[in-house]
């Protein structure tokens, strides 16, 4: 049964529809990411769950109770803002204690929970620091402790790591995942960084222009993208124009000189999507010429000019001899590694 449920939620600002037909069921303890380019409506959706914005249409339910009827101050959700929105006139401990004060938690229990929350995010000993005297990463941790100390039913994170430098971001990702696993809080993370979404989430909601493109586990969205948008947004991909040939038996999928038995349920022009690391060099298949070859330590990156347009190939550096620039090669892949979508012909 769904713990948090969004049922055909939509939001309009004036005549502009910013989020449309957004339906999602989040299980208890799940870690969900909203992934999409800037301006696709991720923050808006999160703010509707938080209660800072009212949905124009649709319902939001938490444990089968209508959440939109509850005032944001009473929803009991933990929120970490992109800017952290810490209270600059309060110390770290006072910041974390604020939510407990609002819940009239007795003083001694409050102090104990604040101490534990700060220790959990690795800030033991920083109780009396003011936010302005802390680094970005430390402020981030205070914000997380402040959101978690109230034992929220759902934790909402709006691009919490985007203000950190790359190395710190990676550290915080690992830590965030560990903390979430330990305390088991249902979490929704908003991000435009596909690596972050993939390394943290149980499931990813890929969004584009206010609509859900795909909901799935990181592997599903990466390996079986439901649309061209998803396959392009989640890492590098090759899209080849192909055709399903129904004149032969069994029916065949043809892309240039590459052919395979056609998948069921499709016909006519199709797009074949295949990740660069799933393409190999073989004796038969799509004929191509290697334009550039780039050595990147643990792998080689080839840029090729194929019958079906430009192609990228990534090969593990396993010590085998690799083709060089200018070589004519044949590109081949296993049918189960590709995803095939109907192609609209202009």
């Amino acid at each position: 049964m769904a713990y948090l449920e969004l049922d055909r939620v939509a939001k309009q600002f004036g005549t502009q529809t910013v989020v449309d037909d957004f339906s999602l069921a989040v299980g208890k303890g799940e870690f969900i990411s909203f992934l999409g380019p800037s301006g696709c409506g991720k923050t808006t959706t999160l703010q509707m769950i938080a209660g800072f914005l009212d949905p124009t249409r649709g319902a939001i339910r938490l444990e089968d109770k209508d959440l939109t009827a509850v005032h944001p101050a009473k929803r009991g959700l933990g929120i970490v803002f992109q800017s952290y929105a810490l209270f600059p006139h309060m110390t770290a401990a006072e910041n974390v204690a604020f939510g407990l004060e609002m819940r009239n938690v007795p003083r001694t229990e409050r102090a104990e929970r604040v101490r534990a929350a700060l220790a959990m995010v690795g800030l033991a000993g920083f109780e009396d620091r003011h936010p302005r005297r802390m680094s970005g990463g430390q402020q981030q941790r205070v914000a997380l402790a402040r959101a978690l100390v109230i034992k929220p039913s759902v934790l909402l994170l709006d691009e919490p790591l985007s203000n950190l430098d790359a190395k710190l971001r990676e550290e915080m990702q690992i830590e965030l995942r560990q903390i979430q696993r330990t305390i088991g809080t249902t979490t929704i993370l908003v991000t435009h960084d596909q690596n972050e979404a993939m390394s943290l989430s149980d499931r990813i909601v890929v969004m584009s222009q206010g609509k859900i493109e795909q909901i799935g586990t990181p592997q599903e969205t990466y390996e079986k993208p439901a649309s061209a948008f998803v396959s392009q947004f989640l890492g590098k991909t090759n899209d080849f124009a192909g055709m399903i040939d129904r004149t032969v038996v069994p029916t065949q999928l043809v892309a240039g000189s590459w052919r395979a038995p056609a998948p069921a349920g499709l016909g006519g022009p199709v797009t074949v999507s295949i990740r660069p690391e799933r393409i190999g060099f073989g004796d038969a298949g799509l004929s191509a010429k290697i334009l550039t070859r780039i050595f990147q330590g643990n792998h080689w990156l080839f840029q090729c000019d194929s019958e079906c347009g430009p192609a990228i190939v990534i090969r593990q550096n396993d010590g085998q001899a690799q083709p060089v620039e200018g070589d004519a090669v044949r590109l081949t892949w296993r049918p189960e590694d590709m995803s095939v979508r109907t192609r609209a012909v202009a």
Binding site: A50, F52, P72, A73, K74, R75, G76, L77, G78, I79, F81, A85, L86, F87, F98, G99, M102, R103, R146, A147, I150
Partner: peptide, 9 residues
Amino acid sequence: NAAMSLGAG
């Protein structure tokens, strides 16, 4: 919004 989410009126 931060204050409100923590339960402050």
